[in-house]
């Protein structure tokens, strides 16, 4: 029996085959899924904000793209992943409300995606696929067996990336 491990908001977790990871109702947050296809180890972090250095209260490392990805990799390595084999798939970063242009909440989704990408690039982790931006929420499931990321949205067909 495989288990579906839930990852909450500002949370991270890891699993290995045949288990899977899921996070429900991603809005402007970004779900970053990392995978080592040899050890079949998967990890997922649900980040809310781009940059921990811009925030005073930053103890919750899973909340930020920069520290969250680092922490996730460490946890995957403990489970047997090789950090040099990791590849990434990312989803989320939507703009849920059409805020007027002078609102600083406007671009939070986009900024989360940008920060996640640049953090991954700085670690030399390749992004194999992404489903980001636009204006709708996503539920994602990441399977450690195959490395496939399922993206479900309201009124849209299931997407496998």
């Amino acid at each position: 029996m495989s288990i579906m491990v839930k990852v909450g908001m500002a949370d991270l977790n890891v699993c290995s085959s045949p288990d899977a990871l899921t996070t429900l109702g991603l809005g402007s947050c970004v779900g970053i899924s990392l995978y080592d296809s040899v050890s079949k180890t998967a990890g997922m972090v649900h980040v809310m904000l781009p940059d921990s250095t811009k925030i005073k209260n930053n103890e919750n490392i899973a909340k930020f793209a920069d520290t969250g990805i680092d922490a996730l990799i460490d946890k995957m390595v403990l489970l047997g992943a090789n950090r040099h084999r990791l590849v990434a798939k990312i989803a989320g970063g939507a703009q849920m409300f059409a805020f007027s242009s002078n609102n600083d909440m406007l671009r939070i989704g986009e900024r989360n995606v940008e920060a996640s990408k640049s953090k991954l690039a700085s670690l030399g982790i390749k992004i194999l696929a992404e489903d980001t931006g636009l204006n709708y929420g996503r539920t994602i499931e990441f399977y450690a067996e195959t490395g496939e990321l399922y993206v479900k949205s309201v009124g849209k067909p299931l997407k496998v990336i």
């Binding site: 908001m9 500002a10 429900l24 109702g25 991603l26 809005g27 402007s28 947050c29 809310m48 904000l49 925030i55 005073k56 209260n57 103890e59 919750n60 909340k63 939507a94 849920m96 409300f97 059409a98 805020f99 007027s100 909440m105 939070i108 204006n135 709708y136 929420g137 996503r138 539920t139 309201v154």
Partner: peptide, 25 residues
């Protein structure tokens, strides 16, 4: 002005959650 979205509750609530996330948990 009112902004509206029809979507998953989690996705919609992520918007105020992020604002709160800037100052605490």
């Amino acid at each position: 002005i009112p902004y509206m979205s029809i979507d998953m509750a989690g996705a919609i609530l992520s918007v105020p959650a992020i604002e709160f996330g800037k100052v605490g948990d």
